[in-house]
Computed example of a mutant assay.
Amino acid sequence: MLSVTLGLLMIVPQHAMAAGNDRVLLVVSGNGADDGKTRPGFEMDELTQAWAVFTDNGFEVDIASPSGGAVVADKFNGKKPYNSRFLADPEAAAELANTRSLASLGEQKYAAIFVIGGKGAMFDLPISVPLKTLLAETYLAGGVIGAVCHGPAVFMNVALEDGTSLLEGRAVTGFSNEEEAMFGKGWAPSFPVLLENGLRGSGAIYSEAPIMLNHVVADGRLVTGQNPYSTAAAAEAMVKALGRPLATREPWADERSISLLFQMVNGDGAQARAAFDADPSLYDVPLIAMWGFFRAQSAGSDREALTEAVEIMELALPHFSRPELVSAIADARTKLAEPK
């Protein structure tokens, strides 16, 4: 029996449903158009990284969207290894070319459901009743549910069988207000609510890392990742929550770069710099440079953040020299030279 009360979808199951053992559902927004220019869609990098993690850990993966059929991703780099691998896989490419509709999955049982982000997820996924039903039934049956970036928006108005909010008192993360202010200016004014505000308002205990660093929160069988660079770690946390040992893998260059940045902002700069200097080719140097640039832009008068930004930009500069990077370093150093 289904009932809707005050915007919360309440699931009152007739009987317990056993979660599937080897099938995972990835959910993407169907909102996108024109590579995200006229309407935002989903993040291809998030979809393909999650697909790679679940596939490599022995799961069968389905892909669904609210209406099914073809869906449009925001602009992406098809040469990135996870994207090229996905697009070269005939079954995966076919799944994405003709996604399953959420309404058609009522009888399907999943071990886990992972909601992919992208700004489109703020528009069509939170109002999908079939998605809320699938999430609640999977969770109540002992399955694992998760989301990354803007994907956690789907959890804001899901209620459990006793009427309580799924998020009440639960530890979560998602795309932060700080990240939205830096990267979401084009579409955020159209959101029903900023994601961080919505999660907090739903009773969740929200936490975040500095902009675009990997941050995953696992609260039992509810797993959330803060931003696109949290995708692989969030998917792996779901695999762990399902009780499976993780398959070993080499981190991707951008993933390795985010780990290096995390080290540097958490006081382990010497070791991070040594690892980078040993073989810069293992890293996504433009990503490191741009992270330092945006860190400087968002730092304001925070001297610690400015110092971190300068160190990171100067680390990348010999391998990625750009006038704007040189200018940003100079501006940050000028601020640091001002009296406290």
Results as ranks from 00 to 15, higher is better:
residue 300 G to T: 04
residue 331 D to Q: 13
residue 86 F to S: 04
residue 126 P to I: 08
residue 308 E to R: 13
residue 330 A to W: 00
residue 48 T to M: 03
residue 254 D to Q: 13
residue 238 M to L: 06
residue 48 T to C: 08
residue 21 N to F: 09
residue 274 A to F: 00
residue 64 A to R: 01
residue 83 N to K: 01
residue 275 A to M: 09
residue 35 D to Y: 11
residue 213 L to C: 08
residue 303 R to Q: 14
residue 170 R to A: 14
residue 137 E to V: 15
residue 82 Y to R: 10
residue 289 A to G: 12
residue 85 R to T: 13
residue 262 F to S: 15
residue 38 T to G: 12
residue 46 E to W: 02
residue 121 A to T: 06
residue 219 D to Y: 01
residue 25 L to M: 07
residue 9 L to W: 09
residue 8 L to M: 09
residue 207 S to V: 00
residue 82 Y to E: 14
residue 141 A to Y: 01
residue 139 Y to A: 10
residue 157 N to V: 03
residue 13 P to H: 09
residue 127 I to R: 15
residue 240 K to C: 08
residue 3 S to P: 03
residue 163 G to D: 05
residue 212 M to K: 08
residue 169 G to T: 10
residue 83 N to A: 13
residue 288 I to R: 04
residue 12 V to N: 14
residue 69 G to Y: 11
residue 64 A to F: 06
residue 178 E to M: 06
residue 62 D to P: 05
residue 323 P to W: 05
residue 337 A to N: 15
residue 278 A to G: 07
residue 305 A to N: 09
residue 101 S to A: 15
residue 131 L to K: 02
residue 259 S to Q: 13
residue 249 R to C: 02
residue 95 E to H: 12
residue 173 T to L: 08
residue 198 G to L: 05
residue 187 W to A: 11
residue 45 D to R: 02
residue 100 R to S: 15
residue 258 I to S: 12
residue 92 A to Y: 00
residue 17 M to E: 15
residue 247 A to P: 07
residue 323 P to Q: 06
residue 39 R to H: 12
residue 269 G to Q: 09
residue 111 A to C: 10
residue 66 P to E: 06
residue 123 F to Y: 14
residue 239 V to L: 06
residue 258 I to C: 11
residue 264 M to F: 03
residue 123 F to M: 12
residue 193 V to L: 12
residue 43 E to T: 12
residue 289 A to H: 03
residue 337 A to P: 11
residue 35 D to S: 14
residue 301 S to Q: 14
residue 192 P to I: 07
residue 180 E to G: 10
residue 169 G to R: 04
residue 152 P to V: 06
residue 224 T to V: 07
residue 272 A to P: 03
residue 36 G to E: 00
residue 124 D to A: 09
residue 106 G to K: 11
residue 319 H to K: 11
residue 140 L to G: 10
residue 185 K to W: 03
residue 145 I to R: 02
residue 306 L to E: 01
residue 322 R to D: 11
residue 242 L to V: 05
residue 129 V to N: 11
residue 229 Y to F: 14
residue 320 F to A: 08
residue 146 G to M: 02
residue 315 L to M: 13
residue 231 T to A: 06
residue 1 M to G: 15
residue 252 W to E: 15
residue 280 P to V: 05
residue 161 E to R: 13
residue 67 S to T: 09
residue 143 G to Q: 02
residue 294 F to W: 12
residue 184 G to F: 00
residue 223 V to Q: 02
residue 62 D to C: 04
residue 59 F to S: 00
residue 203 G to W: 09
residue 243 G to L: 00
residue 144 V to E: 01
residue 257 S to I: 02
residue 29 S to I: 09
residue 141 A to T: 14
residue 238 M to V: 03
residue 34 D to N: 14
